[in-house]
Amino acid sequence: MTESFKSVDINDRELLLKKDQTITIRIDSDLNIKYRIKDADVKIVYIVDTEKAINFHEQGEISGGRLQILFYDLTPSLLHQRSLFKNKKGELSLTTKYLVRSKKDVVIECVNEKSNTIVNIDNSCVILDDGDLLLECTGKILKGAKQSSSHQKSRSLVYGSPQRVKIDPVLLIEESDVEASHALSSGTIDEDVLYYMNSRGLSKDASLKLLINSYLLPNDDALESIEDKEAILKRLMERVDDL
């Protein structure tokens, strides 16, 4: 994608991350990764950007500190994703962005295993022609994980026809002294919004791209401190421009 990415094979490896760091991972083939965060502030940015079908399996464990994950799926091809996070101590913030033009089968499970753990999940999806998304997102708070929190929100923008999207937000709560919530919004592009944008000189295509970008582009804070920020943003824009 860009020369600034270093090529390191982490497939089938178990990583222990003990230092504050930001890691950018470009997924261009199947990946199975396990890692544990121990008393560190870690940010992982995944970018799925290939024409190949991808199987991605991830298991993360937080044993102190903060794990922030930004997951961008820009690939026009198939994606089979399984992400499991066990939060034993600390905070997990998971942000996913899917540009869906083919079949995507995504299962995310975030478990608050111990007390005072925090999980926040934010999924955004744009479903284009022939897109088919199944997203199962589960927040689970185990018995004994008192004063923990698990919040998730998902939103999808559906464009074109035919398209299919199924998002299942699930909360499984075994403890009473906790905070939990889930929110889901799904909608098509509003004709009045499109007219408003057209009335300012934006063509239908330009308007749609602006709306799609609004779903997919991360906010400034999310990419702050990431070395390859500009390259990531550029690639996101290119993928949308290709539509």
């Binding site: 509003d190 009045d192 919004v193 007219y195 408003y196 944008m197 057209n198 009335s199 300012r200 000189g201 934006l202 063509s203 239908k204 330009a206 602006l210 709306l211 970008n213 609004s214 779903y215």
Partner: peptide
């Protein structure tokens, strides 16, 4: 002309109920 062409040619409509575009 299409709506966007009308705008580019120099027409502007300040609307009674301007649309909200969340995320943009």
């Amino acid at each position: 002309m299409s709506v966007d062409e009308r705008s580019k040619k120099g027409l502007f409509l300040g609307m009674q109920n301007p649309q909200e575009i969340s995320g943009v």
